[in-house]
Write a protein that binds this DNA or RNA. Sequence first.
DNA 1: ACTCTCGGGACTTCCCGTTCAT
DNA 2: ATGAACGGGAAGTCCCGAGAGT
Lengths: 193, 193, 193, 193
Amino acid sequence: MRNSRAEAAQSRERIVIAAARMFRADGIDAVSVGDVMKKAGMTHGGFYKHFASKEALVAEACGFALRETRSRLRIAGESAEKGEELKAIVDTYLSERHVENPAGGCALAALGGELGRANSEARKTLDEGRAAFISLIAQYWKGPDADLSASAFVSALVGAVINARIAGEDRRKVLRAARHALHQRIEESQRAH
Amino acid sequence: MRNSRAEAAQSRERIVIAAARMFRADGIDAVSVGDVMKKAGMTHGGFYKHFASKEALVAEACGFALRETRSRLRIAGESAEKGEELKAIVDTYLSERHVENPAGGCALAALGGELGRANSEARKTLDEGRAAFISLIAQYWKGPDADLSASAFVSALVGAVINARIAGEDRRKVLRAARHALHQRIEESQRAH
Amino acid sequence: MRNSRAEAAQSRERIVIAAARMFRADGIDAVSVGDVMKKAGMTHGGFYKHFASKEALVAEACGFALRETRSRLRIAGESAEKGEELKAIVDTYLSERHVENPAGGCALAALGGELGRANSEARKTLDEGRAAFISLIAQYWKGPDADLSASAFVSALVGAVINARIAGEDRRKVLRAARHALHQRIEESQRAH
Amino acid sequence: MRNSRAEAAQSRERIVIAAARMFRADGIDAVSVGDVMKKAGMTHGGFYKHFASKEALVAEACGFALRETRSRLRIAGESAEKGEELKAIVDTYLSERHVENPAGGCALAALGGELGRANSEARKTLDEGRAAFISLIAQYWKGPDADLSASAFVSALVGAVINARIAGEDRRKVLRAARHALHQRIEESQRAH
DNA sequence: ACTCTCGGGACTTCCCGTTCAT
DNA sequence: ATGAACGGGAAGTCCCGAGAGT
């Protein structure tokens, strides 16, 4: 029943992982501390030994989710052929798989709406993730104002996934449109330099 | 009798208006039926004479909010000088005012995240609003594939507002970047035709 | 989900009945408010609309249990042949069935130990039940000092059931011994008058 | 080394003594391992060096308590004048002192209710105490079926103390009634032989 | 032997959606 | 239309048994 220090650390990690998935899938308010703990294989009584509050967990889960997504996108970029990195990132982000599996997807798209409202710790975490996302894009961008362009790029990516999720059956059309527009922009910028 | 019916209709409208503002400002879960009714100048007991459930109100409030926003954007387009219509719409949508006042802003940006999850009536309403938003843009678009381009355009708009709200202090940078990118796209398309 | 006043009263009664059974079966500390509510077909959230605290429920459940048992014993007495009433009551109380089914049995035997400690409302309720139990016996008792004799009688009954439950396999012997002794006492008192 | 082992044994004994008093006074569930250890002059960390579990302590504490009570009753019997032994035991057991001081009293009366429910080690210990109690009585009993009579006798004793504790203010009446009845039984049995 | 930690679970408070009763 | 009621469910606090770590 009781655990050594190492096992407790594992418990904590299981909680964060479960939370990161569940919050993205169902929203923060719809997921209770008890739900998360159950998925992590515990009861909700011990939660407050690991986190000061639900809010603290939200922040940490967001951080985890953002790192996860960033790492996936970075790999997509690095695995692509030279000159195709950005397109690979776009295609990964704007995939049906991403739209249909928010649990493993980008926290900006899944939780940006609700976290943009309050000035919580989680909002700051999300904002850091956003900045890092922009950096990731900017490093592949040709031309001046890479950061500005990358910022607009990220906005377009996030907005497309959100709109695709709203679109229901038409989600493929939304994704295709966004992919097309972003590919064009990439090509133009590459042509220009 | 006729009077009371008219009054009831007015009550109903007040409820919808209050709900539309509050949901966009604080999110659906954070706003209770009682909160809405209080803001509408009633007590929460009578709510269910007007609506079958909170969900029904959510759907209706979304519809109202979307019509409101669309109308504002349409006016922005119509008031602009010839050839500047799209830019006017973009500048209206991507204004600080919009970002800082979700209560009167676009429901796609405010509620798209949470409503994209469940397949509710409200999600369908939001989707219709999205389609109408695209039409509004497409009607000003030059060139083929107006719908496709407009869809990507809307994604970029919505994503920028959401990201700006996440960004906190940096929201102006986010808006500027998006505005810049979209203006460029508009000009290119106009140049091409 | 919501209920009319009559249904709420039924809910309340279901709670009391479930509690009366569970407390007697497993003890007060071993049964949580949530357990009771689950057995009553509800969740534990609504409990405090019906009772001020768990303690209040304990008192009420005891009262219910005692009335139930008293009524059963009264019927046993009334159904017996003339002059056999007390023996019938004894045999009902000191049956294997009673020992093996504390959930439907006498609250004095099941909860007397733990409730005798604190001066709770439930203890007072139990005490009233004890007094009523004595009256029930006394009304059949021949001779002077009926109340005194009945009090000793009740002590012997309660003690026998408790001891039988402790005895495990030997419970039949304990019951037989107590039955024998009490039958003798009844006969002596009848002979004497 | 030898010293420390002796000290450990003393610690263990202090724990058992404290536990035996506290469990009888407040019930098993209401007394935590920490409470017991504090009363024994230690912190609760070392508990599990002495006992495998709280349950094991309960069993041992019951054994201790029962031996203690038995010894007291045996002395009461042995100190009495010839022919008065049983009455002396009865009067000792059915004293106000006993009723008001469960901490030093009979474990059957104090814990019989809660331990009669589960089939724990402690229940078996209690059962052995019960058998020994019966033997103690039987050895003074005149006439055939001494064991049977003694069993009923013990039931009456235990039941009277439990009822007296329930009775609150009326505890004296309960005790007097039981004493009276048992004295009569003793006299009858003595007259008969 | 002591201190600290972990996980379990209970109680209570609060609030929400929904409906009843007026 | 009001206000109270009912049932659901969450957050948080507290404490317990058990064990780890020093």
